Amino acid sequence: MAEPVIEARGLGIKFAMNRRRKRSLREMFIHGNKRDPNPTGSDFWPLRDISFEIGQGECVGIVGKNGTGKSTLLKMIAGVLIPDEGSVEVRGKVAPLLELRAGFNDQLTGRENVQLVGSLHGMSPKMIEEKFDEIVEFANIREGYIDMPVRHYSSGMKVRLGFALISQLQHPIMLVDEVLAVGDKAFKKKCYDAIKRMLADNRTMVLVSHSESDLKRFCNRGLYVRDGALVLDSDIQSALDAYNADVKAEQEAKTAKPAEEKKKPTGEDGNGKAA
């Protein structure tokens, strides 16, 4: 059996709630030593005891509500975050597109960011030069904007340029976080075509998206994450069905609670009158 390209074993990460921070001079002047503006609190585990394997050529969707650790899991796979428990091993170069700002430096121009980020991912200056016009055309960056600082770009422009650049990499593993939620139909079609080409080339992809149609379009497998735990590792339809069933149950419970409260008697005789 082929060795998995991504292997997670007992993966967990903790964040400190109400982490202690350095106090400003203004706070020290006003409050002296009497007030700690952010006392140390307890640790919070957004993810814990996560184990799975992903083989070459698989496209796996991570399913779950906002705040359940989907993006955090992608960042641990990419090596951006270091786990506090367990381990994750990635066998092969990773092309990550993990956030709306696409890893760009806001002070640099679009051209400079393509050169910087491309070189950081192993593209040679010659390759960047050869692919540059194609990257800009794919991203649909209007004339003049490519030489403006990206702080003037919309979030959509940043993502388009980031995806256009990352899709040029030949890395065997790609991590994509909510990129397909940004852009018009024409850009989405370009993204769909690029993803299809990469998957046809037997590359591996881990995808986070709130679009069920996108997940079902590309993914042959789903990891359903709930309350910091991996509760289901199955085909993508089963993972989505489990997620939707839980969402429906939560909504029904919220609806039923106010109805039950209205039915409660306000007096001891059960008729709303005091006994």
Score class of each variant (00 low, 15 high):
Glu212Phe: 02
His171Pro: 07
Cys191Asp: 02
Arg203Met: 04
Met205His: 03
Lys158Trp: 06
Thr204Asp: 01
Pro172Trp: 05
Ser167Met: 08
Arg217His: 15
Leu207Phe: 00
Ser154Gly: 09
Pro172His: 06
Phe218Arg: 03
Asn220Pro: 03
Ser211Leu: 07
His171Lys: 09
Met205Thr: 04
Leu165Gly: 08
Ser167Glu: 12
Ala200Tyr: 11
Asp177Ser: 10
Lys216Leu: 13
Pro172Thr: 04
Phe218Asn: 04
Asp214Tyr: 01
Met198Cys: 09
Asp201Ile: 02
Ala186Cys: 12
Val206Cys: 00
Val179Arg: 13
Leu180Arg: 11
Cys191Leu: 06
Cys191His: 01
Phe187Lys: 00
Val182Cys: 09
Lys185Pro: 07
Ser154Cys: 08
Ala200Leu: 12
Met205Cys: 09
Arg160Ala: 08
Lys216Arg: 10
Val182Gly: 09
Gln170Ser: 15
Ala164Ile: 06
Leu169Trp: 11
Ser209Ile: 01
Gln168His: 13
Ala194Lys: 15
Leu169Pro: 13
Lys216Phe: 01
Arg160His: 00
Met157His: 04
Phe218Val: 03
His152Phe: 11
Lys158Asp: 07
Lys190Asn: 02
Asp177Val: 04
Gly156Ser: 02
Ser211Arg: 05
Leu175Asn: 05
Leu161Trp: 07
Gln170Ile: 07
Glu178Arg: 07
Lys188Cys: 14
Met198Val: 05
Leu175Cys: 01
Cys191Thr: 03
Leu161Arg: 02
Ile166Cys: 06
Ser213Arg: 13
Asp193His: 01
Leu169Tyr: 14
Leu161Met: 05
Lys196Phe: 13
Leu207Ser: 00
Val208Asn: 15
Leu180Trp: 08
Ile173Gln: 10
Met205Asn: 04
Arg217Ser: 14
Ala194His: 07
Val176Ala: 06
Val159Lys: 08
Cys191Pro: 02
Gly156Phe: 01
Asn202Cys: 10
Cys219Thr: 03
Ile173Arg: 09
Val176Lys: 04
Arg197Phe: 03
Lys185Ala: 14
Leu215Met: 08
Arg197Gln: 14
Phe163Ile: 00
Ile173Val: 12
Lys196Gly: 15
Leu165Trp: 00
Pro172Asp: 06
Ser213Val: 12
His152Lys: 10
Leu165Asp: 04
Asp201Pro: 06
Ala200Gly: 15
Asn202Met: 11
Leu165Val: 02
Lys188Gly: 12
Lys188Gln: 15
Val159Arg: 10
Leu180Val: 13
Leu199Glu: 10
Lys185Phe: 09
Arg217Glu: 15
Val179Lys: 07
Arg197Leu: 14
Gly183Pro: 09
Arg217Cys: 13
Ile195Asp: 00
Tyr192Arg: 02
Ser154Val: 09
Val179Trp: 07
Val208Thr: 12
His210Asp: 07
Gln168Gly: 09
Ala186Gly: 11
Glu212Asn: 11
Val206Trp: 00
Leu169Arg: 06
Leu165Asn: 05
Arg217Ala: 15
Val176Trp: 03
Arg203His: 05
Arg160Thr: 04
Glu178Asp: 11
Leu161Lys: 02
Asp201Glu: 15
Arg197Cys: 10
Leu175Ile: 07
Asp201Met: 10
Leu165Thr: 04
Leu180Phe: 13
Arg160Glu: 09
Gly162Thr: 13
Asn220His: 12
Phe187Ile: 01
Phe187Tyr: 00
Val159Gly: 09
